[in-house]
Design a protein around this nucleic acid. Structure first.
Lengths: 93, 93
DNA sequence: CATCTATTTAGACAAAAGTCTAATTAGCGT
DNA sequence: ACGCTAATTAGACTTTTGTCTAAATAGATG
């Protein structure tokens, strides 16, 4: 199920930081790597998980890969949380 | 930070299933265990993580421990998701 | 074409997470 | 006090996850 993949993806603080980067602006893999004290290979690993979860998407420009946030996928997540936290959030729409 | 703990807690499918059980009704640790093909010790481990994340709380009755869902803690989670993906229909850079 | 640059993949390794059995704690009811 | 039941904790083990280095891929540019 996609929910599991989504939650696994956002359960890691580095991947959440990547998402927050991409919320500001689209970025190349290299530019994302520079934000973190990790090798490009490791960041690529995180990007793959985020992409497989549908949270980000990529396009190519020259030999750069540009990543961008796929915000619509958070819908399902919100639905799940609403159902659980349900009644206590009815006022928050 | 609490967000990390919360997300780690709900990233496991068994823990989510426990939360969904508790959404139906409060349950003893033993009753929760019976729902899963796991030993009581393992379920206890999951319950501890959920409790430390503030997602559930417990009371004692006789020598039973009764767990219940702590729905209000989903607030912070919702806030984070809203900030990232909540306005997906508005902007797409 | 040759080489350089950006990125990903492969493989090894370490750390974290999940599971079990066995032991322990805690409270109940004779 | 004793044994019984519910639940947790301790310790060992396995699996999963995150990280690195080194190699491979893809494409651009001289």
């Amino acid at each position: 199920m996609a929910l599991n993949q989504t939650l696994k993806a956002i359960s890691d603080p580095i991947r959440r930081a990547i998402l927050e980067c991409l919320r500001q602006q689209d970025m190349t893999a290299g530019a994302i790597s520079e934000q973190f004290d990790l090798t490009p290979a490791t960041v690529s690993y995180h990007l793959k998980l985020l992409r497989e979860a549908g949270l980000i998407s990529q396009t190519k420009d020259k030999n750069f890969v540009i990543y961008s946030l796929n915000a619509s996928v958070f819908e399902e997540l919100l639905t799940w949380i609403y159902q659980l936290g349900g009644d206590s959030h009815e006022n928050k729409n």
